[in-house]
Amino acid sequence: MTRKIQGTKIKETVKRLCVVSGTVLRDDIYRALKASYSAEKSGSRAKEMLKVLLDNADIAKKDGLPICQDTGMVAVFVDIGQDVVVEGGYIKEMINEGVKDAYREADFRKSVVKDPILRKNTGTNAPSVIHFDIVKGDKISISIMPKGFGAENKSKIKMFNPTVSPLEIVEFCVDVVKDAGPDACPPYILGIGFGGTMEDAALMAKKALLQPVDIKSKHKHLAELAEAIKGKANDLEIGVMGLGGGSTVLGVNVAAGPTHIAGLPVAVNVSCHALRGASAII
């Protein structure tokens, strides 16, 4: 019943995903930037800058250069089938070895410090932040999200009362965008987690960013919330680089989970326009 997977296979997969995600912009994001470019007024600074972003993605892909110099701290989402046995290495070490190999060989910036107070750089961009889940089956699914901290720094969580109105939730999420302003590389993509516990909401928010930005939630009430947040955020007219225009938020991805009768956690993870990621199944 069990399937054996070699640790080296995991390491190589993580390495490949890191390199691809750092140099090749996600298709859905590229399409969204292109749509924004088409929508902006010709001759506007916003349109010029969106052109620069599209050119940037083309150059990065062609030359194997990082899309952004902030090649991020890597979040790794690993779903392990319960019938899998990992051989030849501890899975956590294999993942971090893959990150190290990628960042060294692809000349990515090493942005991870070992201790948040002492702040000494590890020099390898490891460790990554790894989220494991046990699922049915005999496969391992790995998703990589290297995220820069310009945008991560603008993310927020709030523990609402259960009686909060949808409008208040929308306002909180829009205020996160307002606070981020032009600082964190708009147009933004928001990952929003509703419910769970505090840490669960934050995790749902980040995981929501793994989903394509052009897919709506299957749940009508969540899709409506996402739409309202996106509409009001775009009304702020922050625009690309804060230069105005309608391209403030490219997409709002939402996720929700069961929560307690006394609360409603809402976490908003802000991503810059260079939302990077790649996935594979072993």
Partner: peptide, 11 residues
């Protein structure tokens, strides 16, 4: 202000 998130372009 420089084009943000366009490090390959600016390179």
């Amino acid at each position: 202000v420089a084009p943000a998130g366009a490090g390959a372009y600016l390179q």
